[in-house]
């Protein structure tokens, strides 16, 4: 399984994802600068968290214009796996690769802490290592995680992760992560790369990366 981690100016979780994939999972991985457009040999594209272009406009609104994004679109159209974490999720919605939008947190403050999540679907390439209905713990760290879509019924079946217990950011229907209709593009607000080792307090996130590896 070859992973490619896209680096935009302002991305800051690229090295964290790299560490988990290479050092914890022992999978081949490389960084892809946003001005490149070659995804040859890549099986899974990771759009990591951070503040692409400073997020001075809407989060992800500028990154979607980076050259790499048209390659990511083609890659996804051909069925390649794409996972967008936090800012990566925001970029995917801005790029139209995932439905909906992510607005400011209800509290209007940045929130960094662990949350409980319920696994709504385990029939995706990103969640096969979980049980359906399982409760897991992962950290969030964002300003704009308040998921919104006009017609909720359109994405009902695409919801993979929901906040469980308490909704930290006001997201509609507690949505924390969704896939596209085809199921090969996944966006989530929690940071699985931050909870992939026991020493960091949880290994629940590692199972997302393991699911991806298992899917191929």
């Amino acid at each position: 399984m070859n992973f490619g981690i896209v680096v935009f100016p302002g991305t800051n979780c690229d090295r964290d994802c790299y560490y988990v994939i290479r050092d914890i999972l022992n999978q081949p991985v490389k960084f892809i600068w946003h001005r490149e457009n070659d995804l040859k040999g890549i099986d899974c594209v990771v759009l990591p968290g951070g503040f692409s272009y400073g997020d001075y406009l809407r989060a992800g609104a500028i990154a979607r214009f980076s050259p790499i994004m048209s390659s990511v679109r083609e890659f996804a159209d051909k069925g390649g796996l794409v996972i967008g974490i936090c800012n990566g999720f925001q970029i995917l919605t801005e790029a139209g690769l995932l439905p909906g939008a992510l607005g400011r947190n209800r509290s209007l403050r940045f929130i960094c802490r662990y949350v409980n999540l319920i696994i709504e679907r385990n029939d995706t390439p990103f969640t096969s290592e979980f049980e359906k209905g399982e409760i897991v713990r992962m950290p969030i760290a964002h300003n704009e995680g308040n998921y919104y879509i006009d017609d909720l019924s359109k994405v009902e079946k695409q919801v993979v992760l929901r906040y469980y217990g308490e909704n930290p950011n006001g997201a509609l229907d507690n949505i924390a992560g969704i896939v596209n209709e085809r199921g090969n593009v996944f966006g989530l607000m929690p940071h699985p790369e931050r909870c992939s080792e026991k020493i960091l307090g949880s290994e629940d996130g590692l199972r997302i990366f393991k699911s991806i590896v298992r899917s191929l």
Binding site: R15, D16, Y19, F110, C112, R113, P139, R194, S196, L200
Partner: peptide
């Protein structure tokens, strides 16, 4: 500290 990203860099 919940307003600070205290986990990045893992």
């Amino acid at each position: 500290y919940q307003q600070y990203d205290h986990m990045v860099e893992t």
